[in-house]
Simulated scan of single mutants.
Amino acid sequence: MAPREVTVGPRTAMPKGYAFLKKGIKYKTLHCRKLTHEAGKTVYVVESNKKVLGIRVPRDILSHVHAQANETFPARKLATEKRDTAMIRQAAEELDSQFPKIPKEDRDLVLKHGFKKYSGRVGRTSLIPLPRKVLYAVIAHIRHKHTKYDKLLEGGMTKDDARKAILKKIQDTLRDWGNKQGRRSSSE
Score class of each variant (00 low, 15 high):
55 I>L: 10
156 G>W: 10
21 L>E: 15
25 I>E: 11
77 K>C: 08
108 D>V: 05
36 T>H: 13
28 K>G: 08
154 E>Q: 15
43 V>S: 02
47 E>H: 05
99 F>G: 02
80 T>A: 09
172 D>G: 00
80 T>M: 09
117 K>N: 03
128 I>W: 09
171 Q>R: 07
35 L>V: 01
1 M>Y: 07
148 K>P: 10
55 I>S: 04
161 D>C: 05
165 A>D: 00
31 H>W: 15
56 R>M: 15
100 P>S: 08
29 T>G: 11
125 T>S: 12
39 A>H: 08
47 E>K: 14
73 F>W: 13
13 A>M: 10
147 T>V: 06
127 L>I: 08
49 N>K: 11
5 E>C: 00
186 S>Y: 07
119 S>T: 13
183 R>S: 08
51 K>M: 12
150 D>H: 01
187 S>K: 15
176 D>S: 14
79 A>Y: 07
167 L>V: 01
173 T>E: 02
66 H>M: 06
47 E>R: 13
37 H>Y: 14
125 T>E: 02
150 D>I: 01
57 V>W: 01
187 S>N: 13
72 T>Y: 06
174 L>P: 03
150 D>R: 02
31 H>Q: 13
153 L>N: 02
58 P>L: 11
177 W>E: 00
16 K>E: 15
103 P>R: 09
92 A>S: 12
3 P>Q: 09
70 N>E: 15
168 K>A: 07
9 G>A: 03
38 E>Q: 15
84 D>A: 06
124 R>M: 14
41 K>M: 11
97 S>R: 13
163 R>F: 04
49 N>V: 00
157 M>I: 09
92 A>I: 06
149 Y>C: 05
19 A>F: 08
140 A>G: 09
22 K>T: 06
92 A>H: 03
1 M>D: 04
118 Y>H: 10
105 E>M: 09
178 G>S: 04
23 K>C: 07
